[in-house]
Amino acid sequence: MSFGAFFTPVARRAALLFELLLGLAGFPGMAAAQAQGEVAMAKSAVLADACAQLVVQAEADQAGCGCPPTGCVRTQGYWSNKPGVIWPSGFDRNAPFFSSGLSWQQVMDRPTRGDAYLFLAHQYVAAVLNRAAGASAPSGVQSVVNGATTWFNSGATLGECMAGGCPLQRAWAGVLDAYINGIYPGAPKHCDET
């Protein structure tokens, strides 16, 4: 029996995350559910959603504690489309974006069309550029950036995350979207455009 069976719905999400982190999801009793593709995919989506919600909640709980956020954030549209925007030092629009076969700018210009790789890439590029431009990031955001960097470096490719696939990467994109729009708890607000 999973730990989640003993908790309220809110606590169950935390228990599911801990099951994932501790590897308890693979113990006897869970094998049958994991063997069924749809059940396993649904469980992954729930875990990814629970993980994202827990990260946001933890940041909200800590938002009043510690150092105030510094800088401000801008959306992917600013970094991709606004004329005359110069990217922070060390970042080149024409540099290869991991193993995608596209440049950073080409990734930003490409429509997502349901591909979680591109959903995440768009938010990732904006988050990384905001950080390089001096915006602070709560630990939950930085953890997502680090996880996404590792995933992109692992050889992930365009088109492998279609039709609802890659729920963790979709959850990461949601966290980074909240960050670059200035609504993530404890993060800098959106920049005032002049």
Rank of each mutant, 00 (worst) to 15 (best):
S2T: 12
F3V: 13
G4A: 15
A5Y: 13
F6E: 13
F7P: 11
F7Y: 15
F7N: 12
V10I: 10
A11R: 15
R12G: 02
R13S: 13
F18L: 15
F18H: 10
E19R: 11
E19I: 02
L21H: 06
L21M: 12
G23E: 07
G23Y: 10
L24D: 13
L24S: 14
L24F: 15
A25E: 12
A25F: 12
G26R: 12
P28W: 11
G29H: 06
G29K: 11
A31G: 10
A31K: 14
A35K: 15
A35H: 14
G37P: 05
E38H: 06
M41R: 15
M41T: 11
S44Y: 07
V46C: 08
V46Q: 10
L47V: 15
A48M: 05
D49C: 03
C51E: 11
L54W: 01
V55S: 00
V55W: 00
V55A: 00
V56F: 05
Q57C: 06
E59S: 14
D61G: 13
D61C: 07
D61F: 13
G64Q: 10
C65H: 13
P68R: 13
P69N: 03
P69T: 04
P69H: 01
G71L: 01
C72H: 01
V73R: 09
Q76R: 13
G77D: 14
G77L: 03
G77F: 07
W79I: 03
W79V: 01
N81K: 10
K82P: 00
K82R: 11
G84V: 04
I86V: 09
W87H: 05
W87A: 01
S89T: 06
S89L: 03
S89R: 03
D92E: 04
S99P: 00
S99R: 09
W104R: 03
W104M: 09
Q106D: 12
D109F: 09
P111G: 07
T112E: 10
R113P: 00
G114R: 12
A116V: 14
Y117K: 04
Y117E: 00
L118S: 11
L120Y: 06
L120E: 06
A121M: 03
A121Y: 01
H122T: 01
Q123H: 09
Y124A: 02
V125D: 00
N130S: 05
N130F: 06
R131M: 02
R131D: 02
A132E: 05
G134W: 08
A135K: 06
A137Y: 02
S139L: 09
V141C: 10
V141E: 02
Q142V: 09
Q142D: 12
Q142F: 07
V144G: 00
N146F: 10
N146L: 10
W151T: 13
N153V: 02
G155V: 07
A156M: 06
L158W: 03
G159D: 04
E160D: 08
M162T: 11
G165H: 07
C166F: 03
R170T: 14
A171E: 05
W172G: 05
L176D: 01
Y179E: 01
I180M: 05
N181F: 02
I183N: 04
P185Q: 01
G186V: 09
K189N: 07
H190S: 14
E193L: 14
T194S: 11
T194R: 07
